[in-house]
Amino acid sequence: MSEPTDRFVIEIGSGTAAHIIDMDADQSETDSRFSFGLTGPGEMMCSRGNRSPRGRQVPFAEFADHHDIDKTGFKGDAPDEICSYCWSNTREAVEKDQQADAGDISEQIGTVGYRLRWKQKGRAREEWYDIVVKPETSMAELDRLVCRMSTLDDFHLRMYGLEDEYLDSSLNVLPDHQYEEAGDRTYTRASEMTMAEVAERARLREGDRLSLVYDLGTPSHYYCIVKEVYEPDRLDEVLDEDVITSTDTAAIVKEKRP
């Protein structure tokens, strides 16, 4: 499955902010969403700029990596390097497509696996780890692999949540031993929640996030981006390939280390 950003490229011209081009736009349509002068492959996502015959186009993922833009699916405010009007219109287009796909996602949940790219805020470019999980993977298994890559210790609580929740986690998932030590039954034991249950709560699709906060007093923030959704057959193939380390139902399959 492709990522929401795959159909878009960044066109770098002479202006201070680059523009977004939808390469899947049908130029034969007469009711173009936006009006501009010079045309070319794809459609510019705003009417505030002009395309240049000397403009250079690069894939969004490449541009984001070069400028350390840590955003997926065009969520949040526009980064300084990209036109805010393009960003807003692109976000609306992606959200519309995702809503149309919502029915398919509901049918997938409980049968598909996920590639989760885990990073620490502030170190996203230097280090990340891809962890592939099955629907039945418990949060306890995931936690063991996250700790392998992040070297987190048990001196402070760590808690999992959805999106950018961190301290405001709606999952309130703690590792089992920390759950026992906390003595607070408003938390959830990691071994009692599976990825299928998390996916049901979050309606997980490519580009979505999960969060992890370490040390609730002086928190460090970790997060993952859903980089890929695997159908069952492909999921088994990925987990049967060479992996870095694994549990019964999950594995670290790729990494970037300093």
Results as ranks from 00 to 15, higher is better:
residue 158 R to V: 04
residue 245 T to P: 01
residue 172 N to S: 02
residue 251 A to W: 04
residue 172 N to C: 02
residue 21 I to Y: 14
residue 217 G to E: 10
residue 124 A to R: 06
residue 226 V to P: 00
residue 240 D to R: 10
residue 17 A to Q: 15
residue 170 S to I: 05
residue 239 L to A: 09
residue 192 E to R: 14
residue 61 A to H: 14
residue 156 H to M: 01
residue 69 I to K: 11
residue 99 Q to E: 08
residue 214 Y to C: 11
residue 157 L to W: 08
residue 47 S to W: 07
residue 175 P to S: 00
residue 95 E to V: 12
residue 131 I to F: 10
residue 105 I to N: 06
residue 197 E to Y: 10
residue 20 I to T: 11
residue 196 A to E: 01
residue 151 T to H: 15
residue 109 I to C: 05
residue 225 I to D: 04
residue 232 P to T: 04
residue 65 D to I: 05
residue 152 L to Q: 05
residue 101 D to C: 00
residue 111 T to C: 01
residue 223 Y to F: 15
residue 189 R to Y: 09
residue 11 E to Q: 06
residue 236 D to P: 02
residue 9 V to W: 03
residue 141 E to D: 15
residue 82 I to D: 00
residue 25 A to R: 15
residue 158 R to W: 11
residue 94 V to T: 00
residue 57 Q to D: 15
residue 240 D to I: 02
residue 236 D to H: 08
residue 10 I to N: 07
residue 73 G to L: 00
residue 55 G to T: 04
residue 255 E to I: 03
residue 11 E to C: 03
residue 30 T to S: 13
residue 190 A to N: 12
residue 170 S to D: 06
residue 161 G to I: 05
residue 134 K to V: 03
residue 123 R to S: 08
residue 106 S to Y: 03
residue 179 Y to L: 03
residue 230 Y to E: 01
residue 29 E to K: 14
residue 3 E to A: 11
residue 110 G to L: 10
residue 91 R to C: 00
residue 67 H to R: 10
residue 203 R to P: 03
residue 214 Y to N: 13
residue 90 T to Q: 00
residue 88 S to T: 12
residue 149 M to N: 07
residue 95 E to A: 06
residue 21 I to N: 12
residue 185 R to F: 02
residue 147 C to K: 15
residue 25 A to W: 10
residue 27 Q to D: 10
residue 250 A to K: 10
residue 111 T to E: 01
residue 184 D to C: 05
residue 163 E to H: 15
residue 26 D to Q: 07
residue 71 K to R: 13
residue 174 L to V: 12
residue 113 G to K: 14
residue 115 R to I: 04
residue 231 E to M: 11
residue 134 K to I: 02
residue 248 D to E: 13
residue 202 A to I: 11
